[in-house]
C-alpha cells in the first residue's frame, strides 16, 4: 500500500507556486530522499505530505486518508528544519521533550508502563541517556536533533518526516544518525528525508525525488546518478555537488 500519494499538487504561499504539478507515490517501507536546490519547495512538499499545508490544487493522501484531515498524530514523526532554533528559555528537559512523543497516544491520563518503556527505549536508541535530565535549550544543535528523533521514535511512528536533520551536526554523529535511519527503515518505517548532501542521500535512500518547484526525477538512486535530472533541476552544468563539512 502507498504510504504517501501525491497527485498533481500545486501550492504557493502567494501568487507564485512553490510546488507545481507534483505527483509521486511512496510505498510503505520505502526511504525517500528529497533533494533539490535551496528554495526548491522541498520543505513545502514535506509539509504538504504530512498535512501541515493544504494543496491549492491536486490531492495528497497519507496512509489512504486526505493528508490535511489525517489526525493519527502518533503515526507521524516530524523533525522540523532548524530545531536548533527552538525556544531556548523553556526549561523543558530532554526526557520531558521525548515524552511528548507519547502524547498523541495519551493526551490525558497517566502514562502506562508501555509509554514509559517507549520513552526509555527511544532515549537509549539515539544515545542521549546521559542528557535525559538536561535542558533542551542548553544542548548543541546535534544533541537537540537527537532529542527530536527520539521524540519521533517514542511515538512509534510509521512515517518519519525529516527536514535536513543533520544541519549543524558533526560528521561522526551524522554517520551514526544515518546508520540509525537505515536500521529503522529496515524495521519497516517509511522515511522521507530532505537532505542537501546528495552523496549521503543516494547512499542511504531507496528512492530519490529531485525537486525544483516541479519534480525532475523520481526513482532509484543509481538511475538518478546517471541521468541529467540533477543538472536540470539545479539549472546548471554541475553534476556532482560537494559539501565539505
Amino acid at each position: 500500500m502507498a504510504a504517501i500519494e501525491v497527485r498533481d499538487v500545486t501550492f504557493g504561499y502567494g501568487e507564485q507556486p512553490v510546488v507545481e504539478s507534483v505527483s509521486l507515490d511512496v510505498a510503505e517501507g520505502e526511504f525517500l530522499g528529497l533533494v533539490g536546490p535551496n528554495g526548491s519547495g522541498k520543505t513545502t512538499l514535506l509539509k504538504l505530505i504530512i498535512g501541515l499545508e493544504a494543496p491549492d490544487s491536486g490531492t495528497v493522501r497519507l496512509f489512504d486518508e486526505p493528508a490535511v484531515e489525517f489526525d493519527d498524530g502518533e503515526r507521524i514523526g516530524y523533525v522540523p528544519q532548524d530545531v536548533a532554533a527552538t525556544e531556548d528559555e523553556m526549561p523543558i528537559t530532554v526526557e520531558e521533550a521525548v515524552r511528548m512523543g507519547r502524547y498523541p497516544h495519551r493526551w490525558v491520563g497517566r502514562f502506562t508502563d508501555d509509554d514509559r518503556r517507549s520513552v526509555r527505549e527511544a532515549i537509549e536508541r539515539v544515545g542521549i541517556e546521559d542528557l535525559a535530565d538536561r535542558r533542551v535549550g542548553r544542548l548543541s544543535g546535534g544533541q537537540r536533533q537527537r532529542v527530536f528523533i527520539a521524540r519521533a521514535l517514542a511515538s512509534e511512528a510509521d512515517l518519519l518526516a525529516l527536514d535536513e536533520p543533520t544541519v549543524g551536526v558533526d560528521a561522526e554523529s551524522r554517520e551514526a544518525f544515518y546508520r540509525l535511519l537505515h536500521e529503522l527503515n529496515d524495521e519497516g518505517i517509511t522515511i522521507v528525508l530532505i537532505e542537501h548532501d546528495i552523496g549521503v542521500v543516494t547512499t542511504h535512500a531507496s528512492e530519490i525525488a529531485c525537486l525544483n518547484r516541479r519534480l525532475y526525477f523520481h526513482g532509484d538512486p543509481e538511475e538518478f546518478v546517471e541521468t541529467d535530472a540533477l543538472a536540470d533541476a539545479y539549472g546548471g552544468s554541475q553534476r556532482v555537488i560537494h559539501h565539505d563539512h
Binding site: 501541515l52 498524530g73 507521524i76 516530524y78 523553556m90 511528548m100 493526551w107
Partner: peptide
C-alpha cells in the same frame, strides 16, 4: 490540568504539535 499536554506541546514546538494531530 486537563489540557496540560497539548498546551506544553504547542508551547514547545507548534509545528510539531500540528504534525502530531493537534
Amino acid at each position: 490540568a486537563a489540557a496540560y499536554r497539548p498546551l506544553v506541546y504547542v508551547t514547545f514546538d507548534e509545528i510539531g504539535a500540528r504534525a502530531a494531530g493537534l
